[in-house]
Write a protein that binds this DNA or RNA. Structure first.
Lengths: 406, 406
DNA sequence: GCGTACAAATTCAGTCATCAAACTATTTGG
DNA sequence: CCAAATAGTTTGATGACTGAATTTGTACGC
């Protein structure tokens, strides 16, 4: 049983509102009649629901549609570009990013701040985030749109029930009550403020904005400084019980391998993480303070067929393959999407990765596994964070639909 | 969006019926008033719903409750022991089991047939199953109860959308359309006939009948001939996209380890499976045709503090720990339940297993992991299969609640 | 140029499940 | 023996959907 409460007519309304709004979202420009046909609701019901959404400013009633044949033309419905926006923030290791995204998923404005990497105190970090949110809210006001909520992406383990950041090794943060702190500092108290893991949100961004409406099941691997993953199943994130899911960085791919900072041995991150790959390829170490772009260097070497670079990357593909095989055997997902750094390395990783998958995945015989590079760039996580808010609205628009004055 | 269809009043009824029935199921002997209080529904609504369930024979109106204090006594409601039963079947390697389970989860009758291990053709196997189902149906008729559906547990990969058994190495079966075949052979066409993986169903059995109503999140490891797992999250099985989830038998715990029949190297099953542990402990090989009980032998040696046996089992615990750490890092589950063979070995496995978990699980620092032996015996999978049917009824009783004649 | 066929959208009565509140039934405490 | 408390039923109101009829708008045929 879905431990949910009692249902009443309002529940029906809620459900159908979401259904109609999502239908409009996935197929822009539908008429009321087509929405009715697609959803199985009556034209009358759809009209009633759509009217409320129009008065609430979530949907706009465009001009008449273009269609051949006789009969009256329907009016094209679309998500309102001036409806509530999602505000996404990403707390990166050396950047702080922010984006305003409208209901259709389009990025309206985005900022990226270079910040002092590491060594930042929690206090500094939080006030920087609060400032940025304030800036974005001002911008939203200038654009004349409201902010429907704030989503925050963090490179660490976030307890979903409390919004507590348990551990973010790359930031050097531990046990920071992000949700409470940011509510207080940003003054966002009457709208959702969501905090989530950066890799998970990047996965969701890929789902929503990656142009793969057909693919509703995949693992999105995002290799930035650490390695994380987002498991997307049936078009929804699978975050695990407390929200710590998808932590593939410390899957043990070689129990006899080199020791890792986490205490284990032969962790994926230690063997196929950015630092490990660059080192194995012989790329000079990146200075701690940022600046040097080892990845560009590596890509150059790969294009020049540098032997060490090629070996380093194909080896990484092998380790990644072992880890992904584990993931697929465990949660049975047919597609691997390579994001972050791995997206750019995909051409060179691909063959060894696929070879390991074919060999190790129990179901590979009759259900081949697809490997694809992500189409989103480094902004995936911010977009995911903002999109999270937008999704929340589309999936439950009821709070925005004030009762009609009648 | 939960790609579900339109909602109407009937949807509300459905939801609330399930809610009320589940409330009665989890707390036997409640009165209508208490159900109303717990669910948040009105007394009037609860009365109306309960009445339908009583006329449908799902619920019985017991005598007045015993309670101190003033006020009228309520009438105790319980699940009807003569309501529809779940019929579970387990196709094992050398056994064929079957059980009739009532709505409360009690096993009413159960059979176990020893059958020729392996070498059985699909044809033979299927007709044996059909015969057994026929037998059980006859018994149900004799008891005067109806069969609400049939659940079948198989040691192999079952595609959940089609009920196709893709592969069952230990049976030697491949690509058997179990669902269609069994529908045809058993004549069960108007009631659900569900086919699922044995390890997954054992996990569900642990959830429903293991007396752990509080624990709604765990991995259940069942080590019989092969090693499988059931991931239970928020009180529901997580079967993966196509139903092949939980295949931990071929997680690679040692990439440089011995080759496995699956083509990989150092698979968990190869290192910590029953055969491997027995061999490492120096227990004489079990004859192919069954008979010898190597496990009893092993347990004897363990109690006698036999060095080889102890090392074999603690090593297995270590391998299992590596695999479980991967599982937990990936899907973030706080509890490991050891079922099947491992339940009996738990006292000896425990410490090395826990040690690996503590070391490798990223979240172990602030969220300790519990390890517990299963309380269910070898009948777990059959019970799970039967319980699956019962759950289906409790979670959607509507089909059984014929409209009142009024 | 005009009527007819056709499709979109709205209107309105009907249905149905919930709720709130009043009412009946039962039991205890004073 | 009555007042207070609790269980369960009855009744009318509310709200959301449906289905059919109606209105509005567009194109095609003559």
């Amino acid at each position: 049983m879905n431990q949910s409460g009692p249902a009443g007519q309002h529940t029906v309304r809620r459900h159908n509102s979401a259904l109609v709004l999502n239908t409009i979202a996935t197929a822009d420009g539908l008429s009321r009649a087509s929405v009715a046909a697609r959803t199985g609701l009556t034209k009358a019901t759809v009209s009633s629901l759509v009217d409320r959404m129009i008065t609430a400013g979530l949907v706009v009633d465009g001009g008449p549609e273009h269609r051949v044949g006789r009969g009256r033309r329907g009016t094209a419905l679309s998500l309102s570009p001036t409806g509530p926006h999602g505000l996404g923030v990403e707390i990166g290791v050396d950047t702080l990013s922010c984006a305003l995204v409208d209901l259709t998923g389009r990025v309206r404005v985005s900022w990226t701040l270079e910040v002092e990497p590491r060594g930042r105190t929690v206090e500094e970090g939080l006030s920087q985030v609060a400032d940025l949110v304030g800036l974005a809210q001002a911008e939203a006001a200038r654009l004349g749109v409201s902010v429907g909520g704030v989503g925050v992406a963090v490179p660490g383990l976030v307890e979903s029930s409390t919004g507590l950041l348990r551990s973010a090794p790359n930031l050097g943060w531990r046990d920071v009550p992000l949700h409470t702190e940011l509510r207080a500092r940003t003054g966002v108290t009457d709208r959702p403020l969501l905090v989530g893991n950066e890799a998970n949100l990047a996965g969701l961004a890929e789902l929503w904005f990656g142009g793969r409406e057909d693919r509703r099941d995949f693992v999105h691997v995002s290799g930035e400084i650490g390695i994380g993953a987002g498991l997307v199943v049936s078009g929804e994130l699978f975050p695990g019980v407390r929200g710590f899911g998808g932590e593939i960085g410390h899957l043990s791919v070689d129990p006899a391998g080199p020791p890792c900072s986490c205490g284990g041995r032969g962790c994926l991150e230690r063997l196929a993480g950015r630092a490990a790959v660059l080192a194995a390829a012989g790329v000079p170490a990146e200075p701690e303070g940022g600046g040097g772009d080892g990845m560009a260097d590596l890509l150059g070497r790969l294009r020049d067929h540098d032997a060490a670079a090629l070996t380093a990357v194909t080896d990484a593909g092998r380790w990644l393959g072992i880890a992904m095989a584990d993931v697929i055997n465990l949660v049975d997902i047919p597609t691997v999407v390579l994001g972050g750094t791995y997206a750019r390395l995909e051409p060179w990783l691909r063959s060894t990765l696929l070879a390991e998958l074919d060999r190790r995945v129990v179901s590979s015989g009759w259900a081949p596994i697809a490997v694809e590079p992500s189409v989103l760039g480094s902004r995936a996580a911010v977009q995911g964070a903002a999109g999270w808010v937008v999704r929340g609205i589309l999936d439950d628009p009821e709070p925005f639909l004030v009762g009609p004055p009648t």
